[in-house]
Computed example of a mutant assay.
Amino acid sequence: MLQVRETGAPVVRGAGSGLVAEVTHAAARHADVTGRERCRRTPDEALHRARPYRGRVRVDGTLLYEGDIQLTNIGGGRCRAGHHQLLPRSVPDGGLLDICVMTDGSHLAELLELSRNAAHLDRPGVLYAQGGEVVLERVDGEPLVLEYDGEPDTGTRTRCTIGISAGALPVLAPAP
């Protein structure tokens, strides 16, 4: 299980900032539909309004990227919104967080289309890493727009730390 360190909020599947979060926030405004259909209606709206934010991404204390960020996706699941394989190297029981950062706004729509088949990873403007803790920071003083498990985060912080919390989710399993 993942956890937002600043709030203690649990995260089961994944979290994101930038366009990923903008889509989630836009979807929340479309109360007439639910589930994946809600997420499918809003990408064009969010993509049209999407603007990069000045940010910094650290993985296990090491700087992965600093500059303009279009989106980040963090988690342990390969797909988001049912069909974007933003984290294709993710293994649910691998013990690591996967993170994808897209920085190239001029090709964002193309990169998102390529993510349907996990063909985005070798493109310029895409960074991919794995680790135990990810820190996202917005360095221009504006709030970091976030989502967790497809739900908009309404916080106003400029920094978010997501880490693995081993054993935090109780499950029933047969005895060894």
Rank of each mutant, 00 (worst) to 15 (best):
residue 173 A to K: 14
residue 153 D to H: 06
residue 4 V to F: 04
residue 152 P to L: 12
residue 4 V to T: 05
residue 6 E to N: 03
residue 123 R to E: 01
residue 158 T to H: 01
residue 96 L to D: 05
residue 162 I to Y: 04
residue 103 T to H: 02
residue 142 E to I: 06
residue 1 M to S: 13
residue 86 L to Y: 02
residue 138 R to F: 01
residue 147 E to V: 03
residue 86 L to W: 00
residue 58 R to F: 08
residue 49 R to S: 10
residue 33 V to W: 03
residue 23 V to N: 05
residue 86 L to A: 04
residue 3 Q to V: 15
residue 40 R to N: 04
residue 98 D to A: 13
residue 26 A to R: 14
residue 47 L to I: 05
residue 45 E to G: 01
residue 50 A to M: 07
residue 6 E to D: 00
residue 98 D to K: 09
residue 72 T to E: 00
residue 115 S to Q: 07
residue 1 M to F: 09
residue 59 V to W: 08
residue 61 G to P: 04
residue 10 P to K: 15
residue 110 E to Y: 08
residue 42 T to N: 03
residue 134 V to I: 15
residue 104 D to R: 13
residue 112 L to Y: 02
residue 99 I to R: 08
residue 162 I to A: 04
residue 158 T to D: 01
residue 70 Q to F: 00
residue 65 Y to T: 05
residue 144 L to M: 07
residue 122 D to H: 08
residue 71 L to P: 12
residue 94 G to A: 10
residue 152 P to C: 11
residue 83 H to R: 13
residue 122 D to N: 03
residue 142 E to K: 11
residue 110 E to C: 10
residue 123 R to T: 09
residue 15 A to S: 04
residue 63 L to E: 11
residue 140 D to C: 12
residue 154 T to Q: 05
residue 117 N to V: 12
residue 161 T to H: 02
residue 141 G to N: 09
residue 48 H to R: 15
residue 8 G to F: 09
residue 152 P to N: 11
residue 84 H to C: 07
residue 64 L to H: 01
residue 141 G to K: 09
residue 168 A to D: 06
residue 121 L to D: 05
residue 48 H to A: 08
residue 49 R to W: 07
residue 163 G to Q: 03
residue 176 P to S: 10
residue 37 E to G: 00
residue 129 A to T: 01
residue 88 P to H: 09
residue 90 S to H: 06
residue 1 M to A: 13
residue 55 G to V: 12
residue 152 P to G: 08
residue 44 D to A: 15
residue 70 Q to D: 02
residue 75 G to H: 01
residue 176 P to K: 07
residue 116 R to G: 11
residue 94 G to Y: 13
residue 1 M to Y: 13
residue 36 R to I: 14
residue 104 D to L: 14
residue 6 E to Y: 00
residue 149 D to W: 04
residue 140 D to E: 04
residue 2 L to Q: 13
residue 133 E to V: 13
residue 132 G to S: 10
residue 12 V to R: 05
residue 66 E to F: 07
residue 156 T to R: 14
residue 164 I to E: 00
residue 122 D to Y: 06
residue 50 A to T: 11
residue 130 Q to V: 13
residue 139 V to C: 07
residue 80 R to L: 14
residue 126 V to Y: 07
residue 154 T to L: 09
residue 13 R to A: 03
residue 103 T to D: 01
residue 53 Y to K: 02
residue 161 T to N: 05
residue 153 D to K: 06
residue 95 G to I: 15
residue 18 G to I: 04
residue 151 E to C: 12
residue 23 V to C: 09
residue 93 D to M: 11
residue 18 G to T: 08
residue 116 R to S: 05
residue 74 I to N: 00
